[in-house]
Amino acid sequence: MNVITAENLTKSFGSFTAVDHISFEVAQGEIFGFLGANGAGKTTAIRMLCGLSKPTSGKGFVAGFDIRKQPEPIKANIGYLSQKFALYEDLKVWENIRLYAGIYGIPEKEIGRKTDEILQRLGFENEKNVLVKALPLGWKQKLSFSVAIVHDPRIVFLDEPTSGVDPATRRQFWELIYDAADRGITVFVTTHYMDEAEYCNRVSIMVDGRIQALDTPKNLKQQFDAKNMDQVFHQLARKSKLNGE
């Protein structure tokens, strides 16, 4: 079953076409890597899929809702995490979970159970009462991910979630992603780490607003006769006409 469908999705700003007729589908429980150079149009595309920006033309459905007409139900059915974690530093770990659970409309009597479940999954039982600002960066990041999916959304959008994180934490973070995917949450992720592209079920590569390649990492490597995803990326992104503009 597809939880994301994009058909000729397009967004223009004046004469500049940031996203140019992109079409793709993402299946439930899939880890979908959304790659591209800076300025290729990734963020604009994600904003449309999250119901934050209306497409100029084309269609998109996320969790069964029309991105053009039903942005509000989309927001209730997705999670979102960017490089900048949206945690409240002056609140304790459990208070942050409590806050997000409330915002996402989880019933009062389920919040306690949900909080315990997250603390246990993260191994944070002893840090329950610690202020978030006192947590190491990697812990904050794991907590951010957990609150982004506190409402068990159909899809979670992760925008460069591992930028600047140490190598071990980066890998532990990917284990959380796998875990979420195993529970049926679809993961839509952008990254500049090409080793992480290998961990995705399928990868799309955007160049100048268009999707120039979309397949499993294995097939992409075969198709481009490349040793790894880094080489695939370089072959495609080098073709950009905008040249970093």
Binding site: A37, S163, G164, S240, G244
Partner: peptide
Amino acid sequence: DEPTTGVDPISRKD
């Protein structure tokens, strides 16, 4: 100080 953080692989190489 971190001239390449958040920069795509092509610009990093440049």
